[in-house]
Design a protein around this nucleic acid. Structure first.
Lengths: 212, 212
DNA sequence: ACAAACATACCAACTGGTCGGTATGTTGTC
DNA sequence: GACAACATACCGACCAGTTGGTATGTTTGT
């Protein structure tokens, strides 16, 4: 009895709408926060279930295992980030260079607010599983690459507008590295000033590349 | 069969070198490498003992527990790094600004070599234990702060020479963040080019602050 | 129209293995 | 024979994953 059904299984992407507060949603929300704050290894499935207010049975009904729920979290995280920058005010700016600088300000400002959880799910996970779990590593890498691509698009538009030829790919990497590095430094120092410090220099550097 | 430490040893905390191949040294060496590559949680004490070729009894004879051996690793790591930059060729440069740029080149070059393990013990550990283990977090923070201070000294000398007034503390933080961020990006991408990419921009930014 | 057959969503209890740590034994040296 | 420097064997806690079950739909043959 209770045959695990073959065939369809709805193939993941029912992400939007459907049940508002199903166990699945509650598990994802809880898992994202726990993974972000405590890391992958240090977060047990029991922790997630307790925080979500459901049981292990529910978790294993919706996800194949720990890796699977982490992968789902990463996908949700990527969407959350995409949505966040898509609706951010800097998009309204007309000048493409201002939009680039506005992007940096947006993140710098958000991370300086006390209530913001200062952790990137992808960065947190990838450091732990880089050697041990290629599937999760690639999923986290995808998240980061998505963010880089979005910023690079802004940079390309600014280059086109100012008729500059910049290596926008490596600049986007500088952005990613500085952001992830700032988050790591925050975890060491607990000093929110790291964001304004480091990202401020990146701001002025990129600004200088478009001025002169 | 096994040559025991000659005579002295005695006074417990003899962190420095030269001791042939005592179990303590072997444990530290093995632990540093395992923690760097696999992280804190994912490295078990059995892993360390197996890699060092000793037993758990030896480990608990020399260290009070996992946190203690990790703390000892961090102290050893800080010394290793200090020694590494102290003996690096860029110190011979006469121009203080060249020495600053030489520091960046030194790290960028070292990390671009294939045989280098692309991981900072302090950065790896601090991300995992930031919320759960304040003692280890502070120890790792100390490592990072030491590196920052050393770089800031170089920056201060360059400022004095060129009669510039720069916020060298925040510049040192930019360096730390970019380095740690690059290491994290490498763990995601496995692309050694991240170092030349990101650190190259930091190089040119700092260079520009001293030129003009 | 209706019930058998099946599918979905969840739950509580358990299992097998791992891990940090301990208790105790053995060996070489002063 | 006291002590440092190990080794061996083991324990309790925890954790990912399993098992077997309940309750509520949803489809389908007649």
């Amino acid at each position: 009895m209770f045959v695990r059904m073959p065939g369809k299984m709805t193939t993941t992407v029912e992400s939007n709408s459907s049940a508002p507060h199903s166990a699945r949603e509650k598990l994802l929300t809880a898992a994202v926060e726990l993974f972000r704050t405590n890391g992958y290894d240090a977060t047990s499935l029991d922790d997630i279930c307790r925080s979500a207010g459901v049981t292990k049975g529910a978790l294993f009904h919706h996800f194949a295992g720990k890796q699977a729920i982490a992968a789902a979290c990463l996908e949700a995280w990527s969407e959350t980030m995409a949505n966040m920058v898509a609706t951010a005010p800097f998009n309204e700016l007309e000048d493409p260079v201002e939009r680039v600088l506005g992007w940096i300000d947006f993140f710098s400002g958000a991370l300086s607010r006390p209530e913001t959880i200062k952790s990137c799910l992808a960065g947190t996970i990838v450091q732990e599983v880089s050697e041990s779990n290629p599937a999760l590593r690639d999923a986290a890498h995808g998240c980061i690459a998505n963010g880089e691509r979005r910023f690079q698009t802004l940079l390309d538009e600014a280059c086109a507008d100012r008729e500059r030829q910049l290596d926008t790919a490596s600049l986007a990497r500088l952005w990613s590295a500085s952001l992830q590095g700032s988050l790591l430094l925050y975890k060491a120092t607990r000093d929110p000033a790291v964001f304004a410090d480091s990202l401020g220099h990146v701001y002025r550097y990129i600004e200088s590349l478009f001025s002169e």
